[in-house]
Write a protein that binds this DNA or RNA. Structure first.
Length: 594
RNA sequence: GGGGUCGUAGCUCAAUUGGUUAGAGCACCGGACUGUCGAUCCGGAGGUUGCGGGUUCGACCCCCGUCGACCUCGCCA
């Protein structure tokens, strides 16, 4: 007989009755009747009930067992009586009558119970992650993550992609997030950086002729955490393709994402490819952001012209100063109590905006101060333009275009949630396309890259030479699911002269481009194929599929808000010897986090 | 760095809003019990109410400061 087990804990069925078996696992739950006791024995696969009777040699030890101790059980498979069958367990028709039990590893008093679905403080969970990971939900999430990654790999390979590993120790890059730096022992005073993404490497792979690359790629960014953004590190399904247009990239990745979501979505619906394409400009207008949650049926309208020169002086005056008015319909909300509207207005103020005006319609009659001041004719225009029903409400966000769009977007989400309009059990995908190449930085008073500087501008060199930079669009796209940005990607700029010009418009001269992007720009001078790709976030895909709002729920050993690993004690101080070898000495000032 | 929420037993929470000895469930320890699957019943132990000041006859509760956790803004090309 095997030293530890003949079967795992989800394996035994009725057809094994009478067999002598050996199981090993954790004591999940114990029910002690004095002269008879039950143990739910758990391993990775499931649970089997162990019965220990008074006359068994194993009884004294079984009585003393504590939850989460690891034991080996020898016994005979027994059919349960009809009224003792547990339909919730796959092994519920049988039990194992223990003849011998060995305590393989004793568990101390638990800082975190493994049994049950109660919620526990983040700090306790992170400090005892090995216990937390034994718990049903988290254990299942991590298995799901592994299965999702395996599926992504298989689907990419089936599509003709090849996986390559790119360096982890690389060079610091001037654009983007803060780098994690690694001091060099051989070159005192110099540093490696961990890759924020394998961006340049994957483009160089295209130059090297590999045609279709992918990688489940670790990425490192030294930025602050959010619920959906783990500090430090995360994984992307990074891919790149040669000789492709934007549509070719979409056509390659849509079936992969659709396939993996279909595979793991259970009862939930998934958008069938091709996913809707929404221009950045339209998304900002209709949804108030560049990552619309299409489960929310509300669409925002621009009603600036209706308010221009109208009787509602606050908006009319603001419009003269360059503001716009965006209207957010609240279907069926017109008959709601005034507190609904005032509450929403107060929420907008709490969010730091000037406020949110409204009209509430009751039987087609518009109520509130805005309706009164604006007059029936203009109100009728709003109703007509937006197709409002007789008992709908409508909110107004007024401000400079970006500000108004932002508030309108937040209000759209809030109203959708409050009125319970968000479609459930569905994954709604879309592409956001035609991002602007540049934007104007109000603080620095200059033109900057709005997203990825390596994207190909639409219209290429001619656009850069002739157009207002702020009007130039890029072959740049995001994929969005249920309001979550899964990835951003682009058709890359593979022509050195266009790249120099693109950087020039953002204030980088030729020598700086040569210095900072040497590896890539140099390679492009020796025959680079047109190429493009994207990089969907693996953690976020798993979050969506596991229906978890927090990214820590789908990561094995996550860090906390302050980017600490409480279990391993990272980051930590290092020895004086290590510092000496690296030529590093701290000043008295001490480091101060920003 | 800014804003918000929170901090009471190992864990989850309560304490009639400033009033006697800070309670309950889970976990733990001891006892009873032969069919449970959140077993049940009886008993026990477990607290400087995050920490430091202050107000008060009296503070878990009010005030000031401080520490910590999470959420968020900034940041994340």
């Amino acid at each position: 007989m095997h030293a530890y087990r003949t079967h795992h804990c989800a394996q035994l069925r009725k057809d094994s009755v009478g067999q002598n078996v050996r199981l090993s696992g954790w004591v999940y739950r114990k029910r002690d009747f004095g002269n008879l006791l039950f143990i739910d024995l758990r391993d990775h696969y499931g649970i089997s009930q162990i019965v220990v009777e008074k006359d068994s040699a194993a009884f004294p030890l079984a009585e003393s067992l504590r939850s989460e101790s690891v034991i080996r059980v020898d016994g005979k498979v027994n059919a349960r009586a009809d009224d003792a069958i547990n339909p919730n367990l796959v092994t519920g028709e049988i039990e194992v009558r223990a003849t011998a039990i060995e305590l393989l590893s004793e568990a101390a008093d638990l800082p975190l119970p493994v049994f049950g679905n109660a919620e526990y403080p983040e700090e306790i969970r992170l400090r005892n992650r090995f216990l937390d990971l034994r718990r049903e939900k988290l254990h299942a999430n991590i298995v799901l993550r592994s299965n999702v990654i395996a599926s992504l790999r298989r689907r990419m390979i089936d599509q003709g992609f090849t996986e390559f590993q790119t360096p982890i120790l690389t060079a610091s890059s001037p654009e983007g997030a803060r780098d994690f730096l690694v001091p060099s022992r051989i070159h005192p005073g110099k540093f490696y950086a961990l890759p924020q993404a394998p961006q340049m490497f994957k483009q160089l792979l295209m130059v090297a002729g590999f045609d279709r690359y992918f990688q489940i790629a670790p990425c490192f960014r030294d930025e602050d955490a959010r619920a959906d953004r783990s500090p430090g590190e995360f994984y992307q399904l990074d891919f790149e393709m040669s000789f492709v247009t934007q549509e070719d990239v979409f056509a390659a990745i849509e079936p992969v994402l659709y396939g993996v979501f279909e595979e793991f979505s259970g009862e939930r619906d998934v958008t069938t490819p091709p996913f809707p394409r929404i221009a950045y400009k339209d998304s900002m207008l209709k949804y108030g952001n560049d990552k619309p949650d299409l489960r929310n049926p509300i669409e925002i309208s621009d009603v600036t012209e209706i308010f221009r020169g109208g009787g509602f002086a606050v908006f009319a005056k603001a419009i003269e100063d360059g503001s716009v008015v965006r209207a957010i319909p609240a279907p069926g909300a017109g008959v709601r109590a005034r507190s609904f509207f005032d509450g929403t207005n107060q929420w907008a103020k709490d969010e730091g905006f000037a406020g949110l005006g409204y009209i509430n319609f009751k039987g087609g009659e518009g109520g509130g101060g805005i309706a009164k001041n604006l007059g029936p004719e203009r109100v009728a225009l709003i109703v007509k333009q937006m197709g409002l029903g007789p008992d709908d409400g409508v909110f107004f966000s007024c401000g400079k275009p970006l500000e108004a769009a932002k508030l309108a977007g937040l209000a759209r989400t809030r109203v959708g949630v409050e009125l319970d309009l968000i479609e459930k059990n569905t994954f709604k995908f879309c592409w956001i396309v035609d991002f602007p190449m540049y934007e104007f930085d109000e603080v620095e008073q200059k033109v900057i890259f709005s997203h990825n500087p390596f994207s190909m501008p639409q219209g290429e060199m001619e656009a850069l030479m002739t157009m207002n930079p702020l009007d130039i669009l890029a072959y740049q796209y995001d994929i969005v699911c249920n309001g979550i940005e899964l990835s951003s990607g682009a058709i890359r700029n593979h022509k050195p002269d266009i790249m120099y010009k693109a950087f020039e418009l953002a204030g980088y001269d030729r020598s700086l481009v040569d210095e900072k992007f040497r590896g890539m720009i140099n390679a492009f001078k020796f025959g680079a194929p047109p190429h493009g790709g994207s990089a969907p976030g693996v953690d976020r895909i798993v979050m969506l599929l596991a229906d978890e709002p927090n990214i820590r729920e789908v990561i094995l050993f996550p860090m906390n808000q302050k980017a600490e690993d409480l279990m391993m004690g990272a980051p930590s101080e290092v020895s004086a010897k290590q510092l000496r070898e690296l030529g590093i000495k701290f000043t008295n000032d001490g480091p101060k986090p920003q």
